[in-house]
Design a protein around this nucleic acid. Structure first.
Length: 576
DNA sequence: GCCGTTTTCGGCCCGACTGTTTTCAGTCG
């Protein structure tokens, strides 16, 4: 069992306990454990097996939870989870997905109206039965109906970062099969889309049967849905469907190209081939019956007179035209990034100390970072007022003076308040090296107000970047209603950067907005928003997203050396 | 359920806003 699945089990227990109004601290313990496991850079199973490390040494994992991890690893399930599931209807947990509904109100809806699914919630709301309950009113009912539209009832999709854990593990398993030459994930996973619905697995080997046997025997497989001569479909226990194709070596490049897609991209390629009297399929490029290419993707593209097109660009959004003109962007690489300018410490809602974060960032090879703990409005995160922030900055300076080879900027994640003002006065902000301004509250305000708030922040001479500019949570929350074009235009005019937040659930801005930002000449800054040392590794997912938008190093502020990065910062007016 | 001790159990981040009420419970990250 992989880490995301372990974490999901604990999250489910936490949800169900909360619905039962269990001790809130017990609930929190399960949530903390889930987060710890999700953030682990190594599989928990490895630690459980290891003689040198103990699960109990992990943050928030004690004797009991360590035992439960062992049980999950051993049996694939948890007696406590089964007990809880037995006491509560299975759909009740779905109600928590509705923004504005928490455990208390979900429980009331269940007890008073027997609501135990999103469907019955919708019916009750639409027939105005909810407003009759004490503590609920017409407004709440309307909100529920509105929010229900944003709850994804689609087939389950996985964040790319989560899918990667399963994909990597499966690839390791298959590559160790005797006779396997190559194994690769194709499809939307290879194109690095922000979420993945299923995995397209491509393998070349001597005997197809042995790979299929090996896949069928994989511990993560729940069931085999189909199996033929070269094609097999399984469902993993976690719920992801995996489609395996076994192809001969000489077709590998063609198959990789074909199964990577996108469909729209491939249709254009095939039409181009047709015009040249060629035919492209998953086995190769053919002139008549003769295969003229197929071993590598480069060959396939070359037969059409095209350079290799990186998978992230294959969305039929103009990349083929650029390739024809040899004007493809030189896409950003992870190694291009020299800094990370959004991270938290345990002074607010981060989990690691200032020193631990700084040292971890240094180990990652960063040349500069900014510590950006929350400002005071974010009370739940223990946000900082002027006095505490200045004290924090003092500690940062003291620590920074001892760190060689990496610059630590004194920063803050500044809240943009509901009325559009900023959460800290100018004289405080003027002392900051770096200010990233974000919206956390009043997310449901109408479009004009949200837009005005962002514009206010962008125009402030003290704000250097806007954090997670749309506030979306992939698959959970749509993001604020905002006139993004106006915001981007202002950002370009005022020299305010836009963040690409690398959290797998955010990836905000998204690829489409990033393209718009690039075209407007807005500087992008790619940050992790790390709340732990492990999360500093998330930068990779921001880079994938940037690549999907065709960003080059020159579009990304933190790919510059510090001195050049600083030149991009707004000039602050001299204080009176 | 974890943690850090006063080594056996008490404390566990906390405050503003919303939509209900007519003083406050529930939700938010």
């Amino acid at each position: 069992m992989e880490n995301p699945e372990l974490a999901a089990a604990f999250d489910e227990v936490a949800d169900l306990l909360e619905l039962e109004e269990a001790n809130p601290f017990r609930v929190r313990a399960y949530r903390n454990a889930a987060r710890t496991i999700r953030d682990l850079p190594v599989p928990a199973a490895e630690i459980a097996r290891s003689s040198e490390q103990r699960l109990e040494d992990l943050q928030g994992i004690g004797e009991d939870l360590a035992g439960k991890i062992q049980t999950l690893l051993k049996t694939g399930d948890l007696p406590l989870r089964q007990e809880l599931r037995g006491r509560l209807p299975s759909g009740l947990r779905d109600l928590l997905e509705v923004a504005g509904l928490g455990p208390k109100r979900a429980r009331i809806l269940y007890q008073q109206l027997g609501i135990s699914s999103l469907e019955s919630l919708r019916e009750a709301a639409e027939s105005h039965r909810i407003r009759g309950i004490k503590g609920f009113g017409a407004k709440t009912e309307e909100n529920i109906i509105r929010e229900l539209q944003h709850v994804s009832k689609e087939e389950r999709r996985f964040y790319l970062a989560d899918a990667k854990v399963y994909a990597d593990a499966l690839l390791r398993h298959l590559r160790a099969t005797p006779g396997v030459n190559a194994a690769e994930m194709a499809g939307s996973y290879r194109r690095c889309k922000e979420t993945v619905g299923d995995l397209d697995l491509l393998v070349t080997c001597q005997v197809a049967g042995s790979v299929m046997d090996r896949l069928a025997a994989y511990e993560g497989v729940a069931e085999v849905l189909a199996r033929g001569g070269t094609k097999m479909t399984v469902r993993l226990k976690i719920g992801i469907q995996v489609d395996l194709r076994v192809v001969p070596q000489e077709s590998y490049g063609a198959a990789l190209q074909y199964f990577t897609g996108s469909k729209a991209h491939n249709i254009i390629l095939r039409r181009m081939a047709q015009e040249k009297g060629l035919k492209i399929n998953e086995y190769g490029v053919f002139r008549g019956k003769r295969r003229i290419a197929g071993r590598t993707e480069e060959q396939v593209y070359a037969t059409l007179g095209l350079p290799y097109i990186p998978p992230e660009l294959r969305e039929a959004r103009g990349e083929i035209e650029l390739a024809m003109e040899h004007r493809l962007p030189h896409l950003l690489e992870l190694d291009d990034l020299r800094g990370d300018l959004h991270m938290h410490t345990n002074v607010t809602d981060g989990r690691a100390s200032l020193e631990a974060m700084v040292l971890a960032a240094k180990r990652r090879g960063h040349k500069y970072i900014a510590i950006t703990d929350h400002s005071k409005r974010v009370t739940m995160a223990n946000g900082l007022d002027a006095r505490r922030l200045r004290a924090h900055w003092k500690s940062i300076d003291e620590l920074a003076s001892r760190i060689k080879g990496m610059t630590v900027l004194k920063g803050v994640e500044l809240d943009i308040l509901e009325d559009g003002t900023l959460d800290l006065p100018d004289d405080v902000l003027a002392e900051a090296d770096w200010v990233v301004a974000s919206i956390h509250y009043g997310q449901n305000q109408p479009r004009e107000r949200i837009t005005r708030r962002l514009l206010n922040a962008i125009r402030s001479p003290y704000v250097h970047a806007i954090g997670h500019p749309t506030g979306r949570l992939i698959g959970k929350r749509k993001g604020y209603d905002v006139d993004l074009d106006t915001v981007l235009k202002a950002a370009a005019d005022y020299g305010c950067m836009m963040e690409l937040n690398s959290q797998p659930s955010r990836l905000d801005l998204d690829d489409v907005a990033l393209i718009a930002a690039r075209e407007r000449g807005v500087s992008i800054v790619i940050n992790t928003d790390a709340h732990s040392t492990e999360e500093l590794a998330l930068l990779e997912f921001g880079v994938y997203q940037a690549r999907r938008a065709g960003l080059e190093a020159k579009n990304v502020a933190n790919s510059r050396p510090l001195a050049k990065f600083r030149q991009l910062l707004k000039r602050q007016p001299a204080l009176a």
